[in-house]
Lab assay of single mutants.
Amino acid sequence: DDWEIHFNNITIRLHGVSEEQIEELKELIKNGAHEEELRKWAEEVNR
């Protein structure tokens, strides 16, 4: 699925990401992940 997530003036566009991966991302954000951590997560997902 395609997703677009907005938070802290950042837009993250995701393509072909599962519901499970979105839940992981929500947890990262909820736990106060920094932009660098989110980038690493996105790189892993996009492999």
Rank of each mutant, 00 (worst) to 15 (best):
D1S: 14
D1P: 10
D2Q: 11
D2T: 15
D2W: 14
D2M: 15
D2E: 14
D2H: 14
W3N: 03
W3C: 10
W3S: 02
W3V: 10
W3P: 02
W3D: 02
W3I: 11
W3M: 09
W3G: 02
W3E: 02
W3Y: 14
W3L: 08
E4G: 03
E4F: 13
I5G: 02
I5H: 05
I5L: 09
I5M: 08
I5K: 03
I5F: 14
I5T: 03
I5Y: 09
H6S: 09
H6T: 14
H6G: 03
H6V: 13
H6E: 06
H6N: 07
F7G: 01
F7H: 03
F7R: 01
F7T: 03
F7A: 03
F7Y: 08
F7L: 09
N8C: 12
N8M: 13
N8I: 09
N8D: 07
N8H: 09
N8K: 13
N8T: 07
N8P: 06
N9A: 11
N9P: 02
N9R: 11
N9V: 09
N9W: 15
I10D: 03
I10R: 06
I10E: 04
T11A: 02
T11K: 09
T11S: 05
T11F: 15
T11G: 05
T11Q: 01
I12K: 04
I12H: 05
I12A: 05
I12Y: 04
I12Q: 05
I12D: 01
I12T: 03
I12W: 02
I12C: 10
R13Q: 05
R13L: 07
R13P: 02
R13G: 04
R13T: 05
R13W: 10
L14G: 02
L14Q: 01
L14I: 08
L14D: 00
L14N: 01
L14R: 01
L14W: 03
L14K: 01
H15W: 15
H15G: 05
H15T: 10
H15E: 05
H15A: 06
G16K: 15
G16E: 06
G16H: 14
G16W: 14
G16A: 08
G16Y: 14
G16N: 14
G16R: 15
G16T: 09
V17T: 02
V17Y: 05
V17G: 02
V17Q: 01
V17K: 02
V17W: 12
V17M: 09
V17D: 00
S18K: 07
S18F: 03
S18L: 04
S18N: 07
S18C: 04
E19P: 12
E19R: 15
E19L: 13
E19Q: 13
E19D: 09
E20D: 08
E20C: 06
E20R: 12
E20L: 10
E20K: 10
E20M: 09
E20H: 10
E20G: 11
Q21H: 08
Q21N: 04
Q21S: 06
Q21D: 07
Q21W: 05
Q21F: 06
I22M: 09
I22P: 00
I22T: 03
I22E: 01
E23T: 11
E23I: 09
E23R: 13
E23D: 12
E23C: 08
E23M: 12
E24C: 03
E24Q: 10
E24G: 05
E24L: 09
L25M: 04
L25W: 04
L25A: 02
L25S: 00
L25I: 06
L25H: 00
K26H: 08
K26L: 14
K26T: 05
K26S: 05
K26M: 14
E27M: 15
E27T: 15
E27R: 15
E27L: 15
E27V: 13
E27F: 15
E27I: 12
E27W: 15
L28N: 00
L28D: 00
L28S: 00
L28H: 01
L28M: 09
L28R: 02
L28W: 04
I29H: 01
I29K: 01
I29A: 02
I29N: 00
I29R: 01
I29G: 00
I29T: 01
I29M: 07
K30A: 11
K30H: 06
K30D: 03
K30I: 06
K30P: 00
K30L: 09
N31M: 09
N31P: 00
N31H: 06
N31D: 04
N31Y: 08
G32I: 01
G32D: 03
G32N: 04
G32Y: 02
A33M: 11
A33C: 09
A33T: 05
A33D: 01
A33H: 03
A33F: 04
H34M: 10
H34Q: 13
H34W: 04
H34T: 15
H34I: 09
H34G: 14
H34N: 15
E35F: 11
E35V: 10
E35R: 04
E35Q: 04
E35S: 06
E35P: 10
E35W: 13
E36S: 12
E36G: 06
E36K: 06
E36A: 10
E36C: 10
E36V: 06
E37I: 07
E37K: 05
E37D: 12
E37W: 09
E37T: 09
E37F: 13
E37Y: 11
E37H: 06
E37R: 06
L38W: 03
L38S: 00
L38C: 03
L38K: 00
L38D: 00
L38R: 00
L38E: 00
L38T: 00
R39P: 01
R39N: 05
R39I: 13
K40S: 06
K40L: 09
K40D: 04
K40P: 00
K40C: 03
K40V: 04
K40Y: 04
K40E: 05
K40W: 04
W41L: 02
W41A: 03
W41I: 02
W41M: 02
W41V: 02
A42K: 03
A42Y: 11
A42Q: 05
E43F: 10
E43R: 06
E43D: 11
E43T: 07
E43C: 15
E43P: 00
E43Y: 11
E44N: 13
E44T: 07
E44M: 11
E44S: 09
E44Q: 12
E44H: 14
E44L: 09
V45S: 02
V45N: 07
V45P: 01
V45D: 01
V45M: 09
V45E: 02
V45R: 06
N46M: 15
N46F: 15
N46Y: 13
N46C: 14
N46H: 08
N46G: 05
N46A: 14
N46K: 10
N46L: 15
R47C: 12
R47Y: 12
R47W: 14
R47P: 11
R47M: 15
R47S: 14
R47G: 14
